[in-house]
Nucleic acid binder design. Sequence first.
DNA 1: TGATTCACG
DNA 2: GACGTACGTGAATCAG
Length: 932
Amino acid sequence: MSTTFGKGCHLHLIDGSAFIFRAFHALPPLTRRSDGMPIGAVSGFVNMIWKMVEENKGPDAPTHVAVVFDKGSHTFRNDMYDAYKANRDEMPEDLRPQIPLTRDATRAFSIACLEQEGYEADDIIAALACQARDAGGRVTIISSDKDLMQLVGGGVEMFDAMKNNRIGVEEVEAKFGVGPDRVVDVQALAGDSVDNIPGAPGIGIKTAALLINEYGTLEELLNRAEEIKQPKRRQTLIEHRDQIELSKQLVTLDCDTPVEVTLDDLEVVAPDPDKLLSFLQEMEFRTVTRRVAEALGVEAPAIEEARSEDMPEEEQEQLPFVPDDYEWVKDAAALQGWIDRINDRGYVAIDTETTGLNEMTAALVGISLSVEPGQACYIPLAHHAGNGDLFDDGKRAEGQIDLDTALTMLKPVLEDDAVLKIGQNMKYDAKIFARLGVEIAPIDDTMLMSYAMHAGIHGHGMDTLSERYLGHQPIPIKELIGSGKSQITFDKVEIGEAVKYAAEDADITLRLWQQFKPQLHRERVTTVYETLERPMVPVLKRMEMAGIKVDRDTLSRMSGAFAQKMAQLEDEIHELAGEKFNVGSPSQVGEILFERMGLDGGKKGKTGKYSTPADVLEDLATTHDLPARVLDWRQVQKLKSTYTDALQTHINADTGRVHTCYSIAGASTGRLASNDPNLQNIPVRTEEGRRIREAFVADAGKVLLSLDYSQIELRILAHIADIGALKEAFADGLDIHAATASEMFNVPLDEMTPEIRRQAKAINFGVIYGISGFGLSRNLRIPRSDAQGFIDRYFERFPGIKAYMDDTVKFAKEHGHVSTLFGRRINTPEINARGPHAGFARRAAINAPIQGTAADIIRRAMIRMDAAIEGLPARMLLQVHDELIFEVDAGAEDRVIDRVREVMEGAAMPAVKLSVPLVVDAGRGANWAEAH
DNA sequence: TGATTCACG
DNA sequence: GACGTACGTGAATCAG
């Protein structure tokens, strides 16, 4: 059995200590039910280890594996430098007792568990990685710690398990600006605040990389420090030479660290089910116990517990999933049996299978139902006998009910007010049924329930929810229909297989519903679900099915013109460059600009390629023609490919209209998202782009109306943060940006200049986004210190803003979420993270209540709109975050505008009484360009 | 498939 | 003291 480590072997070294800290900080505090012992970090650690085990089963599976931990707080580095890691916080009280348990967990998985007094995990990892590499094997270090990046190369790479990123030589170069072999030199110069490595004061990674690349090595640099031109750098390097050399010693990992094991000791061993499961049972990890047992093919041990009200549902015992138990409904009698059961119950989980993802064109293939966990059926309606290949004669498969018969039988139940229909993403099924003349109602939707509770934590697709809350991975659709070119439609799937897949979906949906329903109350989001999520389903269903008329000829003409212009620009660009290249390739553009032409400002991205975003090209365009032409080319190319070409393909053959699909649970803030096609990003900011809106037209004899909220987010900010000056300006109907400018810069309104107003406008927007001096300076293209000055002044004049920001962040840190004025919850799981994403999470938390409240308001307006315009010859077609588009009979415009405006302006009431007025602007025209 | 770029609010 | 930063989306394209 035992082999000697060598060529063909693959060693996985898991940075256990890093795993534990990430688990501890990423997860909510969790305690063992029987005795209250904190076990959140152990749980996260176990899940991560299990994930590594499960995900590394392929041909690239490790042959050897170890989890490596830090041991003790005193290492040989402290002897060299007593301030080493001195700024580390004490280990949190809740974490300390969990440390030994993570060792137990590792051993329970039958994985080697390594730690050595006086050494850090990094040292052991380094020694083993070197040994394995030298023996001709491959090594993957599972960690994202930059201190380990020096080891990369020559068969050693890293893997960031959180981000699922491989870290190879290129990634290291992207981070440090030098190869792995010189990483320690850069680290020695740049230092590290986290580990308290001093480095050279005033020198960061960028500068360090620059110096090392120029001089080759740190030693060479220090020896020739006198030659450095910049006086400050020269002085720093000479003065702090000792400190820099010490830093290098501190960060350097030693391949010769004595380790107490050999590589052969680390050979992968299959876990012993008894040992592993009894550990998991002892920890009382229900979900992972079940999952592991399932994977190992043994029965999960029971975990004793008293079912109690406050116990999270996801931890409760549940029935296994047994695909063979699902029923294939072959005739009307069997279907009647299910209908009787549904009527008895008063509810049913339902799912439809169709030939495609587009509800406007897909055909119904079958329906699945479930009324009790574990019990579900599939009613095939339009399956083919063959599999779509050459020998397929297109015959109907046996054992199916006729579609009309089935629908006639089901329609009374599906439309019965007394029977609740439960689905996952019900808008989809409701649209399919609507096309067949069935108006399904009332409904519940597990996707929307999850969204009300878990927005910001994870997605809300069925696979995610099932894995997370039922501990069960559903049969992947790919196993039935394949993927890519050879993909088949569901009607070609053999019915026996379809039953297992489709009925399972109904089963899962029902189980999720049973779990989520009481949770909504506990999480205090029932009102959000019932007033802001669920009612959107019929509203959006109608809008999407209505679609908007798009004139193909207009688009086609524009495409032609754009093609000509692109060709012309391309010639000019090649001429200017003196060679032909792909203008559509940012990296090739970068090479031309920054290498051939030798322009400054070239930045490389993660992939080591030049990056050439518009703002960079704009700067270059002031002095050169080529970047200006590239910008022009890109604009035209965007308009053509994304809009004038692509939109034509979305025109429905039957209706002649474009039917977008809104995702209700897509954006974490409560906004809708529009896709296939996205009609929320049709150009408007440039004259050329705006003309695309001319292709969105009203039907004959009709007119398009556009009504949009004026400055809704700033108004909400003024209300929430209670800014008197802003509220007064809104109440008086002033130009808000001019009023802000006036207040900030002491300029009377009648002396306001466009430039000053522009700056105030940028600040107003910046505040909504969680402003920073850097961001504002880049936006306004002014020095950072000036930008910071503006912000300081803004906070001084409107102190409520700063208070709002601080309070919001504080709330998020304490509760893990923020809320809108209407109670919508946006979770902020990253808010307590450290490192670069901390800033993102902070700004997102500041923005979410504002953006989310605006989203809630327009949702409320949309939900009331159908009743409000009933009897008027008008249909609501589109929503673009703060704008609604209607199609109305010519002549009815004024009446509709009055009614719609009233609903929109009063949409917050009565739930929230805003202290600022909401104002709605209206436009009308034969097309969207005119109406806007 | 991920990175880059750019369209919108 | 340095680092990297506006918030939220979807889609097309390049390149590996």
